[in-house]
């Protein structure tokens, strides 16, 4: 069973994928988000950190045995168990399908929509309208898939569900955005089910109220 | 062993990941790129196609047993064997790490740099200069990793190598771009090794001359 340390800044939705996967699988994960263990912007620019994690990005994982990984999908995969990864070749491929879907269909437009509302980017009406449409399109596909299923792959929670839920975190934090999106209840129910089974991490989403 | 059909337009670098993986693993893959089997822009908008592949994007894979997959990373993974996917949990995670690296560190700036030169998008000097810097940074990390290794993960070709090589296809097609990038020979040697072992697919890269 994996054991190690996850370096990240607090409330990092990418790190949540790994943290939730570890909770489900039982991997022993220490999370370093603050001094002295880790200071984002400083520690990740040191030569020691960069020698293990050349991009200087977080989350970054170092096992107790020295094994190093960057890229959140890889870390979450490593900290998972076979059930989360997909126990058959078909299930494993479907898990990767939805992980890619989250990265390529949800994250870009969701970020383009949410970041201006957080004051991180300048607001651009045309870009925001396009982003909303793109988010709606992605969530419509997701909602349709969940019309007849409880989870994205198979009959139990997988890395697909964890990844997709985490990718929607900021959409849900900005609650009113999803209400405007007129999301059908399948997605909200889906999120509740993915998060409900794991009591240890529910506090990470305590500020989120599904629409 | 997987057997099915890959729907795509011709010369699609995303489809190449799956095609090369299938060649290595021995999966029986038919590739549908032209009428009557598949017409990009028409077939992928039909209700029949969208019922299996709701995003309408390619590459899309349908097994002879009816199993459907979208997202190129998932398809390539499914058509691989255990060696390509990474035979141990650590190797499998490292494969995913480099796949994510290709998607997040190479493809965005490579697209920003190359698309205007192909007439796909309008040229923007500032965006191009930034893209060049980002490509250089990503390839520097890659080159450094390959300084002491033949392949990205372990001692043999994996999905990591296939994905990273395919993600650089446009950069290499626009040969002069890489010359301007002053790529150290590690990457060129790396590409040659990844492609050299698989004679069946070398024709896919016949128009590419590594810098």
């Amino acid at each position: 069973m994996a054991a190690g340390t996850l370096y990240t800044y607090p409330e990092n939705w990418r790190a949540f994928k790994a943290q939730i996967a570890a909770q489900y699988s039982g991997a022993r994960l220490k999370v370093a988000t603050s001094p002295p263990a880790f200071t984002f912007g400083q520690t990740n620019r040191t030569p020691a950190f960069l020698s293990n994690f050349p991009l200087g990005k977080v989350p970054a994982y170092q096992g107790d045995d020295g094994f190093c990984l960057f890229e959140s999908n890889a870390i979450a995969h490593f900290l998972s168990n076979d059930a989360l990864r997909g126990a058959t070749p078909q299930a494993a491929a479907q898990v990767l399908q939805w992980v890619s879907f989250a990265d390529s269909e949800i994250i870009p437009p969701a970020s383009a929509w949410v970041f201006p509302t957080l004051g991180i980017m300048q607001f651009n009406k045309q870009a925001t309208e396009q982003a909303k449409e793109d988010v709606k399109r992605a969530l419509t596909v997701l909602n349709q898939h969940l019309n007849t299923r409880t989870f994205l792959v198979g009959e139990r929670v997988s890395l697909a569900d964890i990844t997709v839920v985490c990718s929607m975190l900021w959409l849900y934090k900005q609650n009113s955005l999803l209400n405007k999106c007129q999301i059908v209840c399948h997605i909200s129910q889906f999120i509740s089910k993915v998060l409900a089974r794991e009591k240890h991490v529910s506090h990470l989403f305590c500020s989120v109220r599904p629409a | 062993m997987a057997a099915g059909t890959l729907y795509t337009y011709p010369e699609n670098w995303r489809a190449f990941k799956a095609q090369i993986a299938a060649q290595y693993s021995g999966a029986r893959l038919k590739v549908a790129t032209s009428p009557p089997a598949f017409t990009f822009g028409q077939t992928n908008r039909t209700p029949a196609f969208l019922s299996n592949f709701p995003l309408g994007k390619v590459p899309a894979y349908q097994g002879d047993d009816g199993f459907c997959l979208f997202e190129s990373n998932a398809i390539a993974h499914f058509l691989s064997n255990d060696a390509l996917r990474g035979a141990t949990p650590q190797a499998a995670a490292q494969v995913l790490q480099w796949v994510s690296f290709a998607d997040s560190e190479i493809i965005p700036p490579a697209s920003a740099w190359v698309f205007p030169t192909l007439g796909i998008m309008q040229f923007n000097k500032q965006a191009t200069e930034q893209a060049k810097e980002d490509v250089k940074r990503a390839l520097t990390v890659l080159n450094q990793h390959l300084n002491t290794r033949t392949f990205l993960v372990g001692e043999r070709v994996s999905l990591a190598d296939i994905t990273v090589v395919c993600s650089m296809l446009w950069l290499y097609k626009q040969n002069s771009l890489l010359n301007k990038c002053q790529i150290v020979c590690h990457i060129s040697q790396f590409i040659s090794k990844v492609l050299a072992r698989e004679k069946h697919v070398s024709h896919l890269f016949c128009s590419v001359r590594p810098a």
């Binding site: 800044y9 409330e11 912007g41 870009p108 970041f115 793109d134 | 698309f115």
Partner: peptide, 30 residues
């Protein structure tokens, strides 16, 4: 969290690039 999020690298324009690529290859394929 917002301050940290501001330092994240996101491909905001991905959809625009996907769309441009799609149109390009649809034209190329008649």
């Amino acid at each position: 969290a917002v301050d940290f999020l501001a330092q994240e690298k996101i491909w905001f324009d991905k959809t625009r690039y996907d769309e441009a690529e799609r149109r390009f290859y649809e034209r190329m394929n008649g």
